[in-house]
Each structure stands twice: as C-alpha cells, then as structure tokens.
Computed example of a mutant assay.
Amino acid sequence: MTQKIQLNTTVCESQLGQRLDRALAELFPTYSRSRIKEWILAHQVTVNGITKSIPKEKVLGGEHIEIHTYIEENKRWMPQKIPLNIIYEDTDILVINKPSGLVVHPGAGNPDHTILNALLDYYPDITHVPRAGIVHRLDKDTTGLMVIAKTLRAQTSLVDALQARLVTREYEAIAVGHITAGGSINEPIARHKSKRTHMAVHPLGKSAVTHYRILQHFRAHTRLRLRLETGRTHQIRVHFSYIHHPLVGDPLYGRRLRQPKGALEKLIETLSAFKRQALHATMLRLHHPITQIEMEWHADLPQDMLDLISALNADQEAFCQKEEQ
C-alpha cells in the first residue's frame, strides 16, 4: 500500500554550501538521506519552484523546498517470530549472523518470513525506521554478518558510511577451478538484458570492485578471502562467474557440476548436495554510527561450508598419497 505525501520547508541560512540531499535529510529527519536522494533523482523535489535532479547540488540558504512523492507504508509488513542470531546489540545498532535460506527484505515471491519481519517482532520500535533499519543485504542463500540500524539517526549515518566506502566487509568463498593468485576484479555490473533476476558485467553498468586472495588450493577448487570495495547486487557471484570461476553451488551463475577426476565418493556426494553459493560474510568492520568508535565482528563458517572444505581436503590428501605411491 502506498501513501501520498507532500512536504515543504525553507532551507536554513546555516546550511549554506551543503549538498541538497544532506540539507533535506537535516530538514526532514523522519526520512533517511538515501530515500531523499531517491526522491531527487526521481524529479520529486522542487527548489523555488524548479525541479531538481542532482543530489549533490549545493544550497545557498533561504530556498523554498517542496516534495511530492509516494511512500510504501510499513504497516503492510507484519511482525513474525523468526529467530535472529544476534552477535552484537546496543541502543543504536544490531549485528546479526544471517543463516542460509532467509530472505532479507520482502519482495516478489517472498512477501513475508524475512529478516525484516523478524526485526519488527524482535524490536517493534524499528517500524519507525525506513526498511526496518536494513542498510545492506545478503542474498537469500549467502550467510554471515549484517548490521541493522535501530534508529533513523543510526541508519542515516550507516548509509552515508556505506556510500563513502567506509564499511569493510570480508567474505569467504569456494570457487570452481584453480585460481593461481590473488588480485582484483574491476568490472561494472548491470541488470542482465534478458534475465531480469540476474546481474551481469556490462560496460554501462555501475562500478564494481572485488579484491581477493587465495586461502587454500584444492585439486579443482580454490578457497578465497574477498573484500568488497563496492556492494552491487550479486557482485561476488557475478565477478567470479565472469572470470570463469563461479562459486560452488551457485544456482544462478554456476555451470554444470563437474567432479574432479577420481574424486572420493564423499566429495562427490558433498558437491552434489551443495545447492547454494558457497559464500559467507565472515568479517564486518565499521565506525559506530553514533559514538564513531571503530568496531569489528567475525562469524565462523557455517557447517555446510566446513563440511565442504573437509571433503575437499580429504580428496586432496587422497590424491597426493596416490601420486606418491
């Protein structure tokens, strides 16, 4: 359900030289800066009667602002008692360890039973924060760390930090094939031209940078540590598929399952049963949105990835022993 809203105000003289989106975020604290930026880009903001579309345009002070837009009401999202694995909590933020199979936000095909529904049940006051405080997402079957804002002030600060690339997110993954050395993938990403649920590398896409290093080589797979410089949808999965090393189990960007020649039966069974991308958000570091104290959290690999690594190790050892004979 959508609600029509009309807002108007006057820019303060003290805001001289500020970006338009930042000034409006201060003038309308009920709404996040990211939402206000979306309104500007959608030509829903006028300054002295002139429609504006550039969030970074500077204000002089004294301008009359009008906003005519529509917003989705959070009332359509119902609280649901879904367990959350909370790693850290204070009055401003939550850090959770997301399990596989849980969608972050309601959408097409997933109207409920999401992390957002769980947050509304766990902390009802979060209904006053846009998107129930969610500032970044993990794919349904990606596991690991996420930070949630419990207040509008915290959300605005976290969104700004993410946009400024001041939040460090590191992942572990297992990719198909033998990646010889670490490096970076700097390839823009856009919506796939024909598969609307897929993303793809495209020269006209948004900038996307993934850094990676090798943790371990197996016979036909590579264990990786990755750091995101940007946070595009499906970024890691798209980038590694693009360099012909898709993540193990990836249902969208993977290829037909290929077993290493002479693989142990245990590895064959484990790979065949691994039906999600082997990707886990293992480290999160940021400055607290209110205190500005640097904080860091770690989440151990989930059991299915540990089992996969164990099977890959056993296969590697068996192959080496056979080679020595």
Rank of each mutant, 00 (worst) to 15 (best):
I5Y: 05
N8L: 00
S14R: 06
Q18L: 10
D21W: 05
R33A: 04
R33P: 15
W39G: 04
I40Y: 04
H43D: 08
T51E: 10
L60E: 15
L60H: 12
H68K: 04
E73P: 11
K75C: 15
W77Q: 05
M78D: 05
I82F: 06
L84E: 03
D92P: 08
L102P: 13
P106R: 00
A108V: 13
N110E: 11
P111K: 08
H113E: 09
N117Q: 13
P124R: 00
G133Q: 00
R137T: 13
A149Q: 12
T151Q: 09
L162C: 09
T168N: 09
R169N: 08
E172M: 06
A175Q: 00
R196D: 07
R196I: 12
G205N: 15
T210C: 12
L215T: 13
F218H: 12
T230S: 04
V238L: 00
F240G: 01
P251S: 01
R256L: 12
Q259D: 09
E265C: 12
E265V: 13
K266P: 10
L267P: 10
S272C: 11
Q277Y: 08
L279W: 04
A281M: 05
H288I: 06
I290A: 02
I290F: 14
Q292M: 12
H298E: 11
P302Y: 08
L308S: 01
A314Y: 09
D315L: 02
Q316E: 13
E317Y: 05
